[in-house]
Simulated scan of single mutants.
Amino acid sequence: MSNPRKEKRPRVLLVELEYAQISQATIFVELGCAEVSVVTPDGEVLFTQGVLAGRYEASQWLPFMEPQELLRINGHFTAVAARRGRTKRVTYGEGATKTGANPLWRPRTESKFEREMRRTIGALTARVHKQDEELLEQRRERRRERRAELQARQQPVEVVEEVEELQEPPSPAETQ
């Protein structure tokens, strides 16, 4: 059996906003949809527009209305008409700045587990930095070796002994 209190019934509202209220009103359409209508004082509906879920400024319908007409909203929505002033100074009186915080509170000291964890993380970080430095040094050493090899290849070769000039073989006409 279902509990009647927990059953959600669809909330369908009907609100009429006057011309002066529209400029500051906001309409929040829920998951369903709503209808926005412009109505004359006689009750004649000039037009109706369906709106989907979302937030709408009611002022967007002002260009389609005369000052004596009403904006009727029907469906699943919440209309919020703001008051004239946007902000208002509020005075709270004596003791408004006092807090309910515990005046005896002190920051807790780190636990044994936390100290151990920080020590372990520090050791691991140091080990990683050391390995990074070793790899960097190995790369530098390899670069030095490669440069030395390239310089050795580019050095001119010394001539140990000179080769006698070769004479051209005699032509076939000379041999006959």
Rank of each mutant, 00 (worst) to 15 (best):
T125A: 12
A20W: 08
A53T: 13
T91H: 07
G75H: 02
E145D: 04
L71M: 08
K88I: 13
Q151V: 13
L13F: 07
V157K: 15
Y92C: 05
M117H: 09
R127I: 09
V15G: 01
L136I: 07
V90T: 04
Y92A: 04
R119G: 02
I73Y: 12
V39N: 08
L52G: 15
A25T: 02
A20M: 03
R140C: 07
A34N: 07
H76G: 14
Y19A: 08
W105C: 05
E110S: 12
R142Q: 02
L135G: 10
V45W: 09
F64L: 11
K112I: 12
Y92R: 03
R106V: 10
C33A: 14
Q24E: 12
L150C: 01
F47Y: 03
P10G: 10
E141H: 01
V12G: 06
P169Q: 02
G43Q: 05
R153V: 11
L135A: 14
A96S: 04
A96I: 05
E162N: 14
R140Y: 07
L13K: 09
A152I: 10
V36W: 06
G50S: 15
A58L: 08
R142S: 04
Q49E: 10
E110K: 12
K88G: 12
Q154E: 11
S171E: 12
S23A: 13
L62M: 14
E137V: 10
L136C: 11
V159N: 05
E30S: 05
V45M: 00
P4F: 09
L70W: 10
